[in-house]
Simulated scan of single mutants.
Amino acid sequence: MGKKKSNNKKIQAAVTKKKIYDTAHRLFSEYGFDNVSVDSIVEMAGVSKGSFYVHFDSKYSLVAALIADYVNEVDLGYKSYFESFSADSMASDLIMSLINKIVDVITCTMGYDIMRILYEAHLTRTINTDSLLNPSRYLYKIFGNIINHGIRQGEFKKEIDVETITRHYVLAMRGLTYEWCIRYPDFDLRNQSLEHFEILLTGIKK
């Protein structure tokens, strides 16, 4: 009997946490992080404020959980996208397609508010963003796989090691996204990214 009661409590706690999580996600997307309070989250979710703090230390810790989920979902999306291409695709075409996909995710799936919060978190350390910066992320591996593919095809030079090129390509995309954030909405992330990576590709093409 005691075990059943304990299981019921765990199930109820999980349901409550998901309500808070899903509600916050919806409110952040609709109104922006700064305009959503813990009070508005719990009111919309239909849970007590105490329940919120059982699961999350603060609004920032809730965002950290959202970000971790974003990273996992986004990387799975990149993986599926990359695997949809045929094995004989040109590596440069794959790079440009990947950049298009990344821009779609940043502008449509994540959006300006979440990206702004991410960059603030990187600088202020208010949220743990290690999952985004981890070089074992699948996004890094995709860039590395494409570059290796280009070297095997004979399209790319092999004088610069793959890890170095991968690191600089990720840094370039991060820099472009930062520029988009600070100049939003007057910076065309897609056009600027495609132009920038066309230039970068000339440096590694034979």
Rank of each mutant, 00 (worst) to 15 (best):
N145E: 10
Y119W: 05
V105H: 04
E73G: 11
F197T: 08
Y119D: 01
D22P: 03
I204Q: 08
A13Y: 08
R167N: 13
S84D: 13
G144C: 01
D130W: 03
R116M: 13
I106F: 15
V162W: 06
F85K: 13
E163Y: 09
S6D: 15
Y112C: 06
S193M: 02
I142A: 00
P185L: 12
L171S: 09
I102V: 13
M44V: 12
F197I: 09
L123S: 11
M96F: 08
Y140N: 13
V162P: 04
N128D: 14
N7Q: 13
V170K: 06
Y138D: 12
I151D: 10
H55G: 07
R152W: 07
K19D: 01
P185T: 10
V162S: 11
L98A: 05
N191H: 07
D57V: 05
N148V: 04
N145I: 05
Y60I: 00
E73Q: 12
Y169M: 14
A13V: 02
S86K: 15
K10W: 05
G144I: 01
L27E: 03
I106Y: 14
A14L: 11
K59R: 10
L133G: 05
D93T: 09
Y140V: 05
A13C: 02
K4R: 09
Y112H: 14
N8P: 02
K19T: 00
E83A: 13
R125I: 02
S40K: 13
T16G: 02
T126L: 08
N100A: 04
K19M: 09
G50N: 15
Y53F: 15
H149S: 07
E120K: 04
K10M: 11
I102H: 14
V63P: 02
I95V: 14
A14C: 06
E195L: 12
V74K: 12
M44E: 15
G111S: 08
R152C: 14
I114V: 15
K59D: 00
F28R: 00
D188C: 04
S61R: 11
R137F: 01
